Simulated scan of single mutants.
Amino acid sequence: VVFCLQMPVMSAYERRFPTCPLIPMFVASDTVSEYKSEDEAIHVIERRCKLDIDAPRLLKKIAGVDYVYFVQKNSLNRRERTLHIEAYNETFSNRVIINEHCSYTVHPDNEDWTCFEQSASLDIKSFFGFESTVEKIAMKQYTSNIKKGKEIIEYYLKQLEEEGITFVPRWTPPVACKLESSTSHTRRPVSPAINVPDSATKEGLNNKEILNTSSSPSELTAGTPDGMEV
């Protein structure tokens, strides 16, 4: 499924947590782990979601559960402007394997649009003899989620618009403050000190003669190699 959306989709999506009124079966969610890169371009968050699956009471009683738990991992890349979502079932994982993948990416023809893609796989190994029933329930639930996907995002986009949020600045790399040490600057060497004897002034010696007579090895040690006086 691919469709295009405008405005701050990423901000709208985050509003689905910890619960979403448009998804009645989504009862609650807890953050399991979270990672943010130093430049804040990458944000990965993993949640444990509690779902009240629309299944016959008899089937729930046989399975011995009232709720089903899924683990969802959201990987947001602000640098590439992508959001990838991976989800898998934690409950009955030894009997049923459900994997779902969703992605929000920039539309190739219009960078102000967002493309949404969703796919899922279901593998039922065994489920107390109710494999066919579980498959029908899973397919019904997945089809319903596809239809609601765009509706939910548009709901939160409208909510943001009502709050006056119609634009979210794109991520830009932080400007690093490079402080150069004083030793990194090239400084002009300081000329050694010159002692001008009173007698030279009296005898009328010119500046050139004074410099020539003052360039002795002992006087050149008045400065360090990097030009700092001692």
Rank of each mutant, 00 (worst) to 15 (best):
Y88E: 12
Y88F: 06
N89F: 00
N89P: 03
N89S: 05
E90Y: 08
E90K: 07
T91L: 01
T91Q: 02
T91I: 01
F92Q: 04
N94P: 08
N94Q: 15
R95D: 12
V96D: 05
V96S: 05
I98Q: 09
N99D: 09
N99W: 08
C102M: 12
C102Q: 14
S103W: 09
T105S: 15
V106E: 11
H107Q: 07
P108W: 15
D112Y: 14
W113Y: 15
W113M: 14
W113R: 13
W113L: 14
T114I: 09
T114F: 08
T114P: 08
E117Q: 08
E117L: 02
E117N: 12
E117C: 04
Q118T: 06
A120V: 04
A120T: 04
S121G: 05
S121K: 00
L122A: 10
L122H: 10
L122E: 10
D123M: 00
I124W: 00
I124N: 00
I124G: 00
K125M: 08
S126T: 12
S126Y: 11
S126P: 06
F127S: 03
F128P: 07
F128S: 09
G129Y: 02
E131K: 15
E131H: 12
E131V: 10
S132N: 13
T133W: 00
V134A: 02
E135P: 00
E135C: 00
E135Q: 03
E135S: 02
K136H: 05
A138P: 06
A138M: 14
M139D: 11
K140Y: 09
K140P: 04
K140C: 06
Y142H: 00
Y142Q: 00
Y142F: 07
S144L: 13
N145G: 06
I146E: 06
K147F: 11
K147H: 13
K147I: 09
K148F: 08
K148A: 07
G149I: 04
K150V: 03
E151I: 09
I152R: 11
I152V: 15
I152D: 10
I152A: 05
I152W: 11
I153Y: 01
E154M: 10
Y156H: 07
Q159D: 15
Q159R: 15
L160S: 10
L160M: 12
E161Q: 14
E163W: 14
E163N: 15
G164V: 05
